[in-house]
């Protein structure tokens, strides 16, 4: 083991521990979407969740107009990623399936923009 020690290793350790990891350097990818957020909502989400995000008892869909944009962004992240944690999974397995299908059909969207849009639905 001792032979493995090199100055480089320890410098690397010191560097990460003390100067902070450069997690922020990421290249900002610009993603383009087929439809605008409004189009995605009106053409797709609204069919099940209602045009005003009021939910639909028969279709067993929850209301989506009852929370702030910040909360909605978290829920969208959860559904789109199959959970927000490493192996915890999600309580939204049905919508996780739906979302994958919808994204495949081109109904992809930016999470923050969709959250913003939904938070204004009830006020329309």
């Amino acid at each position: 083991m001792i032979k493995q020690i090199s100055t480089i290793a320890l410098v690397a350790i010191a560097a990460i521990a003390f100067t902070g990891c450069s997690g922020e350097k990421k290249a900002t990818e610009v993603k383009t979407y087929k439809y605008s957020t409004t189009e995605v909502y009106e053409k797709s989400c609204s069919k099940c969740h209602g045009l005003n995000g009021e939910g639909n008892v028969e279709k067993k869909t929850p209301a989506l107009n009852d929370r702030t944009a910040g909360e909605m962004a978290q829920d969208l992240f959860d559904v789109k990623n199959g959970g927000t944690n490493q192996s915890s999974g999600t309580d939204h397995e049905i919508m996780e399936h739906n979302m994958q299908k919808l994204v495949d059909k081109g109904f992809d969207y930016d999470i923050n923009s969709m959250a913003e849009y939904m938070s204004k639905l009830s006020k329309k």
Binding site: G82, G83, T84, N85, Q86, S87, S88, G89
Partner: peptide, 9 residues
């Protein structure tokens, strides 16, 4: 035995 369906996000 994890509740989720993968090892890591």
């Amino acid at each position: 035995y994890p509740n989720g369906g993968k090892m890591f996000g």
